[in-house]
Design a protein around this nucleic acid. Structure first.
Length: 433
DNA sequence: GTATAACCCGGAGTTGCCCC
DNA sequence: GGGGCAACTCCGGGTTATAC
């Protein structure tokens, strides 16, 4: 993943073409597809609309043009073009590459007074490429860029340098498009907040419901985190049903997950999370939503806490395993069950000595105290509860404080436990790992 | 009862690989 | 280089559960 600056293949791209989509995720969009943004951007595809692969090919052609001093005409071998874009060269891929040229020659974009180049246009419309052909003898691919397109990018003061190697590694269209949007929106800031439905429109993503949008965005973000140097944390705020604000925060420093060897479909998880995932009921172990739930919970609540609730859910959940596990983690349903189980195991090992050890007595006392604390907090008036909450915020670590403010679900569960601990007296977090 | 969330499945496109 | 095939990924849509 780490690479020298000289190994980087940077492509200059105008912010407009990161903000507005040049290619689409759906492979089956009809010929003559039109996409309009409310700001006056109109995209028309006379032939099949370009997809992620076409977007990557265009990026490669731009790289070649920019390497040749912004050449309007480029000549590439088809084999080189394909392998540089991570495509295994063969006949069908060669035809797909030519199809890509046909897609791009049929694309026009139109702006109405929205182009960020210091000028405001009444109308501005152009193609991406003007001509393309292959040489009969050499089979080399020849492409003529549209002059306006090339100059808009060349003279743009509002641009990003995209690392071609990074965007090439993003195999999923969702991840590639989100990468473009994040790169654009982290232009002069490290935080970006957007309504989930608005983000879906920007993608554009056909998902109707917020839960589906969030699921897809999370999966895309996982891909980006695994395969690029862009490290982003996402948290959500649900103000009302069917509405959610997504907070993206650019992280600096080390990658969270190491780059996996070769192509991988599963997340590379820290060892303690992997061990916990191994405890999940086999039927649900592969589900990304369940893994995400455990990953998030372990960060805020600790390994022991999460472990007992997974085991409890395995035993008790009848239907909807994921929802049951979420609720168990929230309320620590597994606590009493876990202690009873430990006690039963001890009796099994030493049946002649069924003793009530000090630890068990302490745990029992803690359960009673915690229950009392919960009732006490519930009966506090708003002012008293807020005061207690502020006190808890002061004593938790800064990382958790940040997550609570960002609306992180499990951080808020952790804060609630801290409030209970404060009422009980210190040292009763029960979240040790 | 309706809207939304969660999950699942089939179809289509893409990819990697093998054989000729 | 060409053809074919299996595996994989993604999207759209259907079903069921849950919240309001």
């Amino acid at each position: 993943m780490q690479q020298n600056a000289r190994d980087k293949k940077l492509v200059k791209q105008d912010i407009n073409f990161l903000e507005y989509p040049l290619w689409f995720q759906d492979e089956r969009l009809p010929e003559g597809f039109v996409w309009k943004d409310r700001d006056g951007f109109v995209y028309r595809a006379g032939y099949k609309p370009p997809t992620r692969l076409d977007g990557l090919y265009l990026m490669y052609w731009m790289l070649r043009s920019q390497q040749a001093g912004w050449a309007e005409h480029i000549c590439v071998t088809q084999r080189n073009n394909m392998s540089s874009c991570g495509v295994y060269p063969n006949k069908s891929k060669s035809l797909r590459l030519q199809d890509s040229c046909e897609r791009w020659i049929n694309v026009t974009v139109k702006f109405k007074g929205t182009f960020y180049d210091g000028k405001r246009y009444e109308n501005l419309q152009f193609n991406i490429i003007n001509d393309w052909w292959t040489n009969k003898k050499t089979k080399h691919l020849q492409i003529d860029f549209n002059k306006i397109w090339l100059e808009k990018v060349k003279h743009s003061n509002f641009f990003k340098l995209i690392d071609f190697n990074e965007i090439r590694r993003l195999r999923s269209p969702r991840a590639a498009r989100l990468y473009e949007l994040l790169v654009k929106n982290f232009q002069a800031r490290d935080e970006w907040v957007i309504d989930a439905q608005k983000l879906a429109h920007k993608y554009p993503m056909p998902r109707k419901y917020v839960s589906q949008i969030i699921r897809d965005v999370k999966a895309a973000l996982d891909d980006i985190t695994r395969h690029t140097s862009l490290q982003v944390n996402m948290s959500m705020e649900n103000h009302e049903r069917g509405k959610a604000m997504l907070h993206f925060e650019k992280l600096t420093g080390k990658k969270i997950y190491p780059e996996p060897p070769g192509r991988s479909s599963g997340p590379d998880l820290p060892s303690e999370v992997r061990r916990l995932v191994g405890l999940i009921n086999e039927k649900h172990r592969g589900k990304r939503t369940v893994i995400d739930l455990v990953t998030k919970a372990v960060g805020e609540l600790g390994v022991e806490y999460v472990k007992r609730n997974i085991l409890y859910t395995n035993e008790k959940a009848d239907k909807n395993y994921q929802a049951y596990l979420g609720q168990a983690l929230k309320e620590d349903w597994g606590l009493g069950w876990w202690e009873d189980k430990k006690k039963a195991d001890q009796i099994k090992q030493c049946p002649e000595l069924p003793r009530q050890g000090q630890d068990e007595e302490q745990a029992r006392r803690e359960r009673v105290l915690r229950r009392q604390a919960r009732v006490y907090i519930e009966n506090l008036d708003d002012k008293g509860r807020e005061k207690l909450r502020q006190h808890a915020m002061e004593v938790v670590d800064p990382e958790m404080r940040k997550k609570v403010k960002a609306g992180d679900y499990f951080a808020n569960v952790g804060l609630k436990r801290k409030m209970e601990s404060l009422v009980m007296g210190d040292g009763h977090d029960g979240m040790s790992s």
